[in-house]
Design a protein around this nucleic acid. Structure first.
Lengths: 176, 176
DNA sequence: CCATATTCAATTGCGCACAATCGAATTACG
DNA sequence: CGTAATTCGATTGTGCGCAATTGAATATGG
């Protein structure tokens, strides 16, 4: 026991775990690789990768509040508000207060934003070719990652903290 | 054919692909979930997640140049220089020019940075428990992600661009 | 009704990430 | 040599991501 390591190797003591062997690093590096692969395809549309994800959410269902978009993408208003303002400035979406609840801001596709859907339609398939994975492999990987994400999000943080053999480690101004 | 989608569904036309069904999104969301899971464990050590990855790299082998660290983590100097300065300000590393080649900056662990290794030793195992995956599952996932990353990085960008059924899409100042 | 609590977006401040650019140092070449 | 090309890091500017706070609007309880 004591070994569901983030790593593939059981480690005796202070551990020499190459970063490349950490699962967290694999996910981290792959996420960056995805963004770098998308960038040149999205650039002609005037979108960054996170902006593209917001558009995907709106193409799926239009007229969502900031909160709904945030829940779909696990992002908060501090990230979304400026991002949505940039999408608005680019003419892809409009932002307006919900009349029945003035706290909500409803984000809607403009005709321009809706038209962009057709231009972006080929992107997932193009990247699929670059990846060269078959549909079932992609499905499997997606499900493994969804499962992992769920475990990370629901995991008992206090439990984890306790397992870090807890050198009390004087408060060090972690800044975040 | 025409279907190694980034998605699990073949799509007829302009496509209603929920963001949650995109592999890129699964990777993106899981990377964020990892960072959020690490944060409370790293905070007592005064490290952010990317800073922790740099320390892992240095714990594995000390006295590396900025370039070497960047290659290990796929990060460039624009990201690393300020990050390393913060690690230096915190007393975890020192930075000094290589005497034999004044262009290089060698980053070394301070005694404090070296001591941090012991405090951080329990973290991968603690997270491993939170994830609740066995060692072989982790290994499998790591290898799938490494393979995917390689394909994304070596993929023919021009080829991908061509496949985006190429509405020419007037240059739109993508800004990046 | 009114006071309190909650919900929601916006704002602020900090840290990562990358493109583009720069300047200094080194290496290659003629 | 001495000029050109390359390597390396730092810098600048833009955009994401999150914690914490604010302030307005709505919901709740007495």
């Amino acid at each position: 026991m004591a070994n569901g390591l983030d790593d593939s190797l059981a480690t005796e003591k202070t551990a020499l775990i190459p970063a490349s062997d950490l699962l967290c690093f694999s996910v981290y590096a792959t996420a960056h690789a995805f963004m770098r692969a998308y960038r040149p395809l999205l650039a002609p549309l005037g979108l960054t990768y996170p902006q593209y994800l917001v558009m995907v959410v709106l193409w799926e269902r239009d007229a969502r509040t900031v909160k709904e978009i945030g829940e779909a993408l696990s992002l908060d208003s501090g990230t979304l508000t400026p991002l949505l303002k940039r999408l608005e400035a680019a003419g892809h979406v409009s932002r307006s207060r919900d009349e029945s609840d003035e706290r909500r801001v409803v984000v809607r596709l403009t005709p321009r934003g809706d038209a962009l859907r057709a231009e972006a339609a080929g992107i997932p398939a193009a990247l699929g070719c670059v990846m060269g994975l078959d549909v079932s492999a992609i499905r499997g990987l997606r499900h493994q990652l969804a499962d992992l994400r769920l475990r990370l999000e629901t995991g008992d943080e206090g439990e984890a903290r306790r397992r870090v053999t807890s050198y009390p480690a004087e408060p060090r101004s972690p800044r975040r």
